[in-house]
């Protein structure tokens, strides 16, 4: 009986090691995609924390896609975490924002849709359409009262880029792979 249990324990340990190896592989893989591709700047001077984010990810491709009439959607996820030295960071909150540009090739104009606020504008400027998608200016992310003074915080910016109509299938949440494009940190005075 004892040897049987010992054998089962050894087998379980073996499988745990293999799973650990498997996990380490994907940890490394995800780390490879965590490099910074955008700038983030945090403004802590006001009662609300604002940030400016500008991404240069595939601007040329985005421009081409817009010119060729593809509907582009940029979904931003901004995560605020409290830094901890010997454990995983503590999540404070997150903000999600989705922006969409709908090209009209017949009239040669772009409709700029902010899904969060519901505001829609039309523009004939490509630059304006690209800027609308790839940058956030003075975007409020969290109330200062939720943060503590002297504590270091990290802002992670994940970007989900979609081309074409945004579907709302259940599997989209699983298959949609985002990319951490920027990581910034700040400490409240």
């Amino acid at each position: 009986m004892f040897f049987r249990q010992k054998k089962i324990c050894a087998k379980a340990c073996g499988w745990l090691c293999k799973l650990g190896l498997f996990g380490m592989f994907f940890l490394y893989a995800s780390y490879g995609y965590s490099e910074e591709l955008a700038d983030v700047r945090v403004d802590t001077t006001q009662s609300v924390i604002y940030c400016d984010i500008s991404s240069e990810i595939g601007v040329e491709k985005l421009k081409l896609a817009l010119k060729e009439g593809s509907l582009m959607t940029y979904s931003w996820e901004i995560i605020i975490e409290e830094n901890r030295d010997y454990w995983l960071n503590k999540s404070i909150g997150s903000v999600q924002l989705s922006r969409q540009v709908v090209p009209d090739l017949v009239s040669r104009q772009w409709l700029l849709k902010d899904s969060t606020s519901g505001i829609t504008n039309a523009t004939l400027s490509t630059h304006k359409a690209i800027s609308f998608l790839a940058s956030l200016k003075n975007f409020p992310i969290i109330d200062k009262s939720l943060l503590q003074s002297g504590v270091s915080y990290t802002i992670k910016v994940r970007l989900y880029i979609e081309e074409g109509e945004v579907s709302d299938h259940w599997w989209d949440a699983v298959t949609k792979l985002g990319k951490t494009v920027a990581i910034g940190s700040f400490t409240l005075p």
Partner: peptide, 15 residues
Amino acid sequence: RAVESDYRTYKELER
């Protein structure tokens, strides 16, 4: 609009 749609689809596929 049909032309636009085809053009968009074609370009998207080509891209």
